[in-house]
Design a protein around this nucleic acid. Structure first.
Lengths: 155, 155
DNA sequence: TATTGTTATACTCTATAACTATA
DNA sequence: TATAGTTATAGAGTATAACAATA
């Protein structure tokens, strides 16, 4: 196996190299492609991947606090402030005081926010199909399963 | 299946939600964890994930041009300038004029660069083991295979 | 004309620290 | 004392456009 195989990686310019087996590098490159595609697609709704994910969680019945959003999305709490500020200024989400803890804000989507999310989710879904276009349905499911265990390590 | 399962994702605060099946989100979160672990580990060598990947490719016999580095690492050519400037100022890589194309610079690691890379590669490998600690060897190989097809789409 | 490397610029993202009001 | 949200700031990453030298 000394001759480089004619893989997509080798066609990309630098044949199969050290990094082609590097999990961190593959994650970084796959994420860069996915993020660029997602941001481009979501732009038609005035959203980016970040604001879309905050809107998505606010549109469920989970009623997440800003702290919970920060932990789940792996953002700093101060970044969540800016994201929620933006969505709130556009009437897409509201901050509601948590009756059980007056320090905490619960972020919930407005009707307009839910409507926008429904449309954006469809756009995001179509964008994602393009990202995993090379995989079969089984392979895609398998990838999501493995990736989920990487993304949410068991403590 | 209306009751949320006790998965790591649900324990993270927001039970199984829309995003838990979202490939883009899982890629973003997994990459964030991997990148943070990698940067923290590589810091002891004065490297980050970016500069490590440039050094890695320069330390092979591929003799990549800056343009090739940019395409493979999915960076803008102007970012490669800064990365190579930094590594070159530390005596780790050299710019060599490409005899076949006088516009192009080929980036090659110096002996010091190769030595640092060898040490850093070992550090990076250990960091990566932590990232996929929840996976069996077969699962890790399967993940890398699938991820590689996402990272290098077939044109 | 097109491409390689470069410079410049603006914007987004990441990471920290400090402050306030509640707990 | 500790936690939720906020403000401020600096550094890293991303994206564009323009330019000189060369193809």
């Amino acid at each position: 196996m000394s001759k480089p195989a004619d893989t997509a990686a080798s066609r990309a310019g630098l044949g199969d190299s050290v990094l082609t087996d590097d999990l961190s590098f593959l994650l970084a490159r796959a994420n860069a492609l996915s993020l660029a595609a997602g941001n481009a697609a979501l732009a038609e709704h005035g959203l980016r991947a970040r604001s879309y994910s905050v809107l998505a969680l606010s549109a469920t019945d989970a009623r997440p606090s800003q702290r919970e959003l920060a932990e789940f999305l792996r953002l700093d709490p101060s970044q969540v402030v800016a994201l929620v500020d933006d969505l709130q200024s556009r009437g897409l989400v509201e901050r509601q005081p948590d009756p059980a803890d007056r320090r905490a804000n619960v972020v919930v989507a407005t009707d307009a926010g839910r409507a926008l999310f429904a449309a954006a989710a469809e756009t995001a879904r179509r964008s994602e199909v393009g990202v995993h276009a090379d995989l079969s349905a089984d392979e895609r499911d398998q990838l999501i399963l493995l990736l989920r265990r990487l993304a949410f390590p068991s403590d």
